[in-house]
Design a protein around this nucleic acid. Structure first.
Lengths: 160, 160
DNA sequence: ATGGTTGCAAAACGTTTGCAACGCC
DNA sequence: GGCGTTGCAAACGTTTTGCAACCAT
């Protein structure tokens, strides 16, 4: 199972900031503004998402544990919820099983998943505008494009 | 949580057939042709899907048990897999939890799900053609539209 | 008869919860 | 110091599995 991206999935993430109001200091400030606390676990988990690109809670836990072995699974679940509430990460369902989290630092995108080879491709939300526009005008339905996962078969697997 | 449909979600299902090659006799024949056996459980479970419209495995089990109390959960899971393999039912993920199965007897459709009120609307696959056409031409990706679930906010909930 | 199918029970899986200790602000 | 947060362990709901009995063909 491979994984590719069309969208610049740069792991620029939320770190490596300059002074003042970079995205780096931003999220820490917003976190506190909402009454949350800034803990090492939260920084580590957000960092893991940034580095991993797409990751299940379990994968996040494994990654974080390589740095701090004591971190617990329930903390990962609770933290991912907080980070999603802050708009720092999002999740999509790339398999019938566990959800997959990804950073929102890059461009907003949705996913194509090939059922045959398992490849996951990130696509800019603009590509879906024809559908989302139509659903809004015809049904008054406002689509959460960033959560969208489109299943099907990729070019390589269709050719074969 | 309500549930509405745009597509004629008639519970015509696979039953009530005429002689010869109706969809009724068809699936039983195809089932056997593939080496499967026709069991009471399989007929009951397919019937339950037809009657319920959209249903989780658990809901299917509950419905079937009202008719035959001895039916087991694992049989439901195994049977839904068989029925999906035969193309008689499909599943989509309408919640972050259990999958939802529905009959394919009616028109092929995908789903809109409102995160606020939970309403589920069935939409004809043609509505998504603008997106699926573009993904095919731009990415060579063939979309399984029938599995698609689009999350967002419905008209009523947006207005409020 | 014979091999696919079932029910049962147990395990697997991902996630959530209650709670006391902990540590950020 | 207060309260949000953590780790732990146990519970949870859903799905899967091994297996002997069963029954459709």
């Amino acid at each position: 199972m491979s994984s590719v991206s069309d969208v610049p999935e740069e792991p620029v993430g939320h770190g490596h900031g300059h002074p003042e109001t970079t995205p780096d200091t931003d999220w820490r400030a917003e976190l506190r503004a909402k009454g949350y606390r800034l803990t090492p676990q939260r920084e580590l988990i957000l960092g893991a998402i940034d580095e991993l690109g797409h990751a299940t809670p379990e994968e996040v836990l494994a990654h974080v544990k390589t740095q701090v072995s004591s971190v617990n699974a329930s903390t990962v679940y609770r933290t991912l919820e907080v980070l999603e509430d802050l708009g720092l990460v999002r999740h999509a369902h790339l398999s019938d099983r566990a959800p997959t989290y990804h950073s929102v630092a890059g461009h907003e995108h949705f996913h194509l998943k090939c059922r045959t080879c398992g490849e996951v491709v990130s696509v800019d939300v603009e590509v879906a505008s024809a559908l989302t526009d139509r659903l809004r005008s015809d049904h008054g339905f406002v689509v959460d494009t960033g959560h969208l996962t489109v299943f099907g078969q990729c070019q390589a697997c269709t050719a074969t």
